[in-house]
Simulated assay, not measured.
Amino acid sequence: MTNTSTNIPKWFTVVAVLALLWNLMGVMAFLQDPGATPATPIWVTMAFAFAVFGGALGCLLLLLKQALAKIILIISLASVLVQMFHAYFISNAWEVFGPGGAIMPVMVIVIAIYLVWLSQMAMQKSWLK
């Protein structure tokens, strides 16, 4: 029987660790969020929670080489999109932060998309079980 962990490149583990750390910073931001006011709809707060906790769990599952990572990371991406939709199309984030304020949200979306792609690629290469 072949040990699949020997077939997984080291860069995959490095990327998964960095992505886990990135998402743990999101968890910390969620737990310390001073923006959670009574004016913030509960569905936005829930989307934020699903985005960061799902991202962290999905990255942990990547490290554990579990195929469930893909589904969790898709849920995280969808939650990021819901949260950003509210921030930039429903609330007044553009007015508050201006165009420069779009850098971090775009980066968050790109990383979330990348993690879904990475999990899909890892499944195709049979790195996840």
Rank of each mutant, 00 (worst) to 15 (best):
T2S: 03
T2P: 05
N3E: 09
N3Q: 11
T4D: 02
S5A: 11
I8K: 10
I8V: 14
P9R: 08
P9M: 12
F12Q: 12
T13P: 02
V14A: 08
V14R: 06
A16R: 08
V17H: 06
V17E: 06
L18G: 09
L18I: 14
A19K: 03
L21D: 12
M25W: 13
G26W: 00
V27I: 13
M28Q: 12
A29L: 13
L31V: 14
G35H: 11
A36M: 15
A39G: 10
A39I: 01
P41L: 07
P41F: 09
I42P: 15
V44G: 08
T45F: 09
F48W: 06
A49F: 07
A49K: 00
A51H: 00
A51N: 01
A51D: 09
V52T: 07
G54E: 10
A56M: 05
L57H: 01
G58C: 05
G58K: 03
L63H: 00
Q66Y: 02
A69H: 03
I74V: 12
I75W: 00
S76I: 04
V80H: 09
L81N: 12
V82I: 06
V82S: 05
H86F: 13
A87V: 04
A87M: 14
Y88I: 07
A93H: 13
W94Q: 15
W94V: 15
V96C: 15
F97S: 09
G98Q: 04
G100Y: 09
M104V: 12
V108Y: 13
V108F: 13
I109C: 15
I109Y: 10
V110T: 12
I111W: 11
A112S: 14
A112P: 04
Y114H: 07
L115D: 01
L115Q: 01
V116T: 06
W117F: 06
W117M: 00
W117V: 05
L118H: 04
L118R: 03
S119Q: 06
Q120V: 10
Q120S: 12
Q120F: 12
A122W: 00
A122P: 03
M123N: 04
K125A: 06
S126V: 06
K129M: 01
K129S: 01
